[in-house]
Structure formats: C-alpha cells, structure tokens
Design a protein around this nucleic acid. Structure first.
Lengths: 167, 167
DNA sequence: AAATTAAGTCAACAACACTGACATAATCTT
DNA sequence: AAGATTATGTCAGTGTTGTTGACTTAATTT
C-alpha cells in the first residue's frame, strides 16, 4: 500500500498500520509543548529558563535535597547544574546549607522568594491540568496517574515516591 | 504551617495544599523525560538530535507538508529548522519537491531511508505506551487520549486533527 | 595515612533555539 | 505591466542548556 514515486520518495502517510500508538505519541508531544509554554513566558521576564524552573520546582518539593540527589532527578551533569543553580542563589531564590550529618554535602532550600516563584510557575500548569480533568469524571483521575507513572522507567519510581504527598 | 528558619529559608515542602495537581505536574515531567530518552539513544549513533526526530516524524505523518506548515507545528523559526532540515536532506532521509500548485512552496517527503528511521524511532515509544496501556483495561484508552488532547491549547487542535487516522 | 566522596571550578565544545537583515523567485493586486 | 506580497533560503551574531575532561578542596571512610 506504500506508494513509491519515480524518484523514490514516499507519498503515503505513516499510520497506525505501520506503528502502534502514533496518536498518543503525537498527543504527548503537543501536550508537553503547550504545558511548558506557560511557565516559559513568566521565566522570560526574569531572565530565567526552563532549567531554572526544574531546579526550583524540585527544591521546593523536597527542601533539603542535596546536589547529588538533584542531579539524579534531572539527569544532567553537575557542570550543567552549576550555572543555573548559581544564578538562582545569586537572585535569592535558593540557599545552600552545609549538611549537618555529612558536611561535604550542600542541602538546598528555597527562600521565600523562591517559594513564591515556584507557586507562580505552578499556577498555569495546575490550571491547565485541572481544566483537562474537569472534562472527565473524578474517578478517571486515577487512570491518568496510573498511565503516566507506567510511562516512567520502573527503576525511577523511587524518585517519584520519595516526593511528599498532600500531607 | 510554613516553617521559617532564622536565616529565612523554608524547610516545609511544597504540597497539594499550596498548589493543585503537583503529582500530575511531576509525573508529566518524568514521563516525558523517559519517553524521549529511548529515541535519543538511537539518534546519537546517527549524529542526529531530538530536533531531527521531530521533523522526520511529522514529515512521515503528513508527506507533502510544506515548510511553513512544519514551522507552525514545531513552533520554531525557519532559521532553526533550516540546519536540521538540510542535514536530513543531505543524509537522504527527506526530499523537497517544488509545490505543484504554488511553485514557491517546497513539499517535504520522506525517502525510504527516512521512513525506515521514523519507524525505528517510533518503535520504543510505541512499546512504552502499549506497555503502560496494558495495565489498564482497553476502555481506558479513550480517557488518556481525551485528557492529553485537553492539555493542548484548543487553538491548536486543528493541527492534531489534520493528521491522518489509522485508515 | 591513604583512599574515596561531595561539591565546585575552568575550559572547550555542541545542539538547538533566537533576532535581524537581506536575496530570490513566484504569485497576487492594482 | 508594475508593484506588493508571500514562501523559502541564507548570512551573521547571540543565548541557553547541555556535554566531556581535568583539576581542586574539604570531609569522610577505610
């Protein structure tokens, strides 16, 4: 059914017959694109980028996190983290405190400003999610969460589970 | 309940009480991180990046797409697309054909090689999704699709709807 | 005392995005 | 037919976010 042209190019679209789950592959792309676009606009005004957002987010979710833990979650190198973290510290969004048990470690905490910004950045994302869930009946929430968690490598579920629940 | 320390840093974690849907915010982050990691490994060997993947994907999904259409979907500038597209053309994954109606346009088509690579890149992503769905009963598939579509800006639903269905 | 670990730093580099300016060819408008 | 607009391509410069590799410092472990 794949139609070839004289010069060898393909005119037939790739569809579900060729590869499964294409619809979800592209929905995931579009959803993530728009999901990140909202905070990006806020960050631009502060001369921060998406990398700053990620650091700020996780430090707020787990205050006292060490540098090594953060690197594990973000899956980037310490040199890459260094620049971004330095800027967040300089602009008084995060502070580093020498680890009490092991004084080589640096525990990361948000300042009041850092907490405020994290909340401001979370707001449009919460709104987008709440809006998407509203169109579903409440029992469906668990389905979404289960699906998303199953999309994550099981080896890293521990990262998710280590974050605090609603409390 | 927010506990301040003498020097002003915050030790209390950000939780659902402070901002809604945090669990889905972070699940979305982790899921997308791992979802893109699989094709990234394949691309590395070919000296391609994630940008090449996105171009190749959409050209395969809608052969004959023009440059302008692609820019709209990817939300990048033509200068940014140029480099990546040139490399895909040089390495014989995509061809450009002068538009038959409007000869200013360049219609983009995958070559056989380009189709093969698109399939190879889609494979691990399909597998990951199929595996995540397997743990749910089949009726739940529609719930996921509905949720993901609702996460996309309605103004861009037309981009999703313009892609070919299984047919 | 020696080895290892946590973190920081310097330097070079690459991918992928951006802005602004300009060129060419084709189409549309008047 | 002339002029304006459109689709694409290209050149040059810049910024963010990532990489590798090498080295330092201080603290902890062996």
């Amino acid at each position: 059914m794949k139609s070839y042209t004289p010069d060898g190019h393909i005119e037939t679209a790739l569809t579900e017959k060729d590869a499964k789950e294409l619809d979800i592959i592209e929905l995931f792309f579009f959803a993530y694109r728009d999901f990140t676009a909202d905070p990006d606009m806020i960050l631009e005004k502060l001369e921060f980028g998406r990398a700053h957002h990620r650091v700020l987010y996780f430090v707020n979710r787990k205050p006292g996190m060490t540098v090594a833990e953060l690197l594990e979650v973000l899956k980037i190198t310490k040199q890459s983290l260094a620049r971004v973290l330095k800027q967040l510290i300089d602009k008084d969004h995060i502070v580093q405190i020498q680890g009490p048990r092991d004084r080589r470690q640096r525990e990361l905490y948000p300042t009041h400003r850092g907490r405020q910004l994290a909340l401001e950045l979370a707001a449009p994302q919460s709104r987008r999610i709440a809006n998407a869930l509203e169109q579903l009946d409440p029992s469906k929430r668990a389905v979404i969460e289960h699906f998303l968690k199953a999309m994550v490598n099981p080896a890293q579920w521990q990262q998710i589970d280590s974050l605090p629940k609603s409390g």
